[in-house]
Computed example of a mutant assay.
Amino acid sequence: MDRPHFIDAAAFDQLLANGHSTAGGDTIDPPPVVKLFTPDANATWLLTEIDPDDEDLAFGLCDLGLGMPELGSVRLSELGQLRGPFGLPVERDLYFTANQPLSAYAAAARAQGRVIA
């Protein structure tokens, strides 16, 4: 799979490195590498890793704006095709810098019913 337009090469490499650590049996709780969002909807994804055996499959905190954020997997190709109600594509938050591990973002999101990042 080609790297999606909304993830730069450095972030893709870090996501893949985290995926290799997990695939190797390491238990890790890294900070999110990227924050993706729909500018015309309430969906947000904080991604920590990409499956090294399927580079289209990413893992992180997924919030579709329904009040039930959850940890899970998402297909990058599907995010690349996703459009909000005004037709805007998924974007990367260029100003996001993670300051805590994914588990902390997940706990806060469950308490608030949405991703706070």
Rank of each mutant, 00 (worst) to 15 (best):
residue 4 P to L: 08
residue 69 P to C: 03
residue 5 H to I: 15
residue 23 A to K: 15
residue 88 L to F: 04
residue 36 L to M: 07
residue 60 G to A: 09
residue 108 A to W: 00
residue 6 F to A: 09
residue 90 V to K: 02
residue 16 L to K: 01
residue 47 L to K: 05
residue 100 Q to V: 08
residue 86 F to V: 14
residue 74 V to P: 01
residue 69 P to G: 08
residue 47 L to A: 03
residue 5 H to T: 15
residue 8 D to L: 03
residue 80 G to A: 11
residue 45 W to Q: 00
residue 28 I to Q: 07
residue 35 K to T: 04
residue 63 D to W: 03
residue 43 A to K: 05
residue 53 D to P: 04
residue 28 I to K: 08
residue 96 F to R: 01
residue 112 Q to G: 04
residue 32 P to R: 06
residue 73 S to V: 05
residue 19 G to W: 04
residue 78 E to W: 08
residue 59 F to P: 01
residue 109 A to H: 00
residue 4 P to I: 11
residue 66 L to W: 06
residue 28 I to G: 01
residue 14 Q to P: 02
residue 75 R to F: 04
residue 105 Y to K: 04
residue 21 S to L: 15
residue 47 L to Y: 04
residue 64 L to Y: 07
residue 44 T to K: 04
residue 77 S to A: 14
residue 81 Q to K: 15
residue 101 P to L: 08
residue 112 Q to F: 03
residue 74 V to R: 10
residue 19 G to F: 09
residue 19 G to C: 10
residue 97 T to A: 11
residue 108 A to G: 05
residue 29 D to R: 07
residue 47 L to S: 10
residue 61 L to P: 02
residue 8 D to Y: 04
residue 3 R to N: 13
residue 102 L to H: 02
residue 16 L to R: 07
residue 80 G to N: 06
residue 114 R to G: 01
residue 30 P to E: 10
residue 104 A to T: 13
residue 57 L to I: 13
residue 92 R to Q: 11
residue 94 L to W: 02
residue 9 A to G: 07
residue 27 T to M: 07
residue 60 G to Y: 03
residue 94 L to H: 10
residue 89 P to N: 12
residue 87 G to W: 07
residue 81 Q to G: 15
residue 111 A to D: 13
residue 69 P to L: 05
residue 75 R to L: 09
residue 38 T to V: 10
residue 23 A to F: 13
residue 16 L to D: 04
residue 105 Y to M: 06
residue 76 L to C: 07
residue 85 P to A: 11
residue 79 L to Q: 02
residue 73 S to C: 12
residue 99 N to D: 11
residue 88 L to M: 13
residue 95 Y to E: 10
residue 34 V to H: 02
residue 102 L to P: 00
residue 66 L to K: 14
residue 103 S to W: 04
residue 105 Y to P: 00
residue 27 T to H: 10
residue 103 S to Q: 03
residue 44 T to N: 03
residue 10 A to V: 05
residue 31 P to G: 14
residue 82 L to M: 14
residue 107 A to C: 05
residue 41 A to Y: 02
residue 58 A to D: 13
residue 99 N to F: 08
residue 81 Q to F: 11
residue 102 L to Y: 04
residue 45 W to L: 00
residue 91 E to D: 12
residue 116 I to H: 08
residue 114 R to Y: 05
residue 104 A to P: 04
residue 114 R to A: 05
residue 10 A to Q: 10
residue 72 G to I: 09
residue 48 T to A: 15
residue 86 F to L: 14
residue 21 S to N: 13
residue 72 G to Y: 07
residue 109 A to P: 00
residue 39 P to I: 13
residue 95 Y to R: 14
residue 20 H to D: 15
residue 62 C to P: 04
residue 45 W to C: 01
residue 89 P to M: 06
residue 78 E to R: 12
residue 21 S to Q: 11
residue 103 S to C: 07
residue 31 P to N: 10
residue 75 R to T: 11
residue 19 G to H: 11
residue 63 D to P: 02
residue 21 S to W: 08
residue 6 F to C: 12
residue 69 P to Y: 01
residue 117 A to K: 02
residue 41 A to G: 03
residue 22 T to V: 15
residue 102 L to A: 08
residue 38 T to I: 09
residue 84 G to T: 05
residue 100 Q to K: 15
residue 1 M to F: 07
residue 42 N to K: 15
residue 87 G to S: 10
residue 47 L to T: 03
residue 2 D to G: 12
residue 11 A to P: 00
residue 58 A to H: 08
residue 105 Y to F: 07
residue 116 I to V: 14
residue 90 V to G: 00
residue 15 L to Y: 01
residue 12 F to C: 06
residue 88 L to Q: 15
residue 54 D to N: 14
residue 7 I to C: 05
residue 101 P to H: 06
residue 39 P to H: 12
